[in-house]
């Protein structure tokens, strides 16, 4: 099955980025496909490569990058939401791309399911 994932909150502040990541990992382990992870609202902060968590904490941004590299997952950051919050090409982490909101609607059309994580 093809899953589309919507992440509406930034990393660390709220658990939703962790829940979304663990859902993606479990779905992939079960042989499902992640069609796209779309980052909206403060969720765009998941894509900041300037993030530097303490050594003993999980690195949420890096985890997304690795997931994209290992499984070829499309990580899309909403351009309007990103510009509002200072996320641009120059501070975008590897594996992410910035695109329009239409990509979220497209995921709704192309994926079998959309699961939303937020606050």
């Amino acid at each position: 099955m093809k899953f589309g994932i919507l992440v509406n909150e930034g990393p660390y502040q709220h658990q939703s980025a962790d829940s979304a990541y663990l859902f993606c990992k479990a779905a992939l382990e079960k042989g499902h496909e992640i069609h796209r992870v779309f980052f909206y609202h403060d969720g765009v902060n998941n894509a900041s490569r300037l993030t530097e968590p303490p050594q003993d904490d999980r690195n949420i941004v890096k985890r997304w990058t690795q997931l994209a590299e290992e499984h070829g997952i499309d990580l899309v950051v909403c351009v309007a939401a990103a510009l509002r919050r200072g996320i641009k090409e120059e501070n975008l982490a590897a594996g992410f791309r910035i695109s329009g909101l239409g990509q979220l609607v497209e995921t709704g059309i192309e994926a079998d399911r959309v699961v939303t994580f937020g606050d």
Binding site: F3, L22, F23, K25, A26, E29, K30, R113, V115
Partner: peptide, 19 residues
């Protein structure tokens, strides 16, 4: 349920998140 069970439930149903 664990995360695998969450995935099974989501695969079975359309999802609505009460944010």
């Amino acid at each position: 349920v664990d995360y695998g069970g969450f995935v099974d439930l989501a695969a079975e149903h359309t999802c609505q998140s009460w944010l």
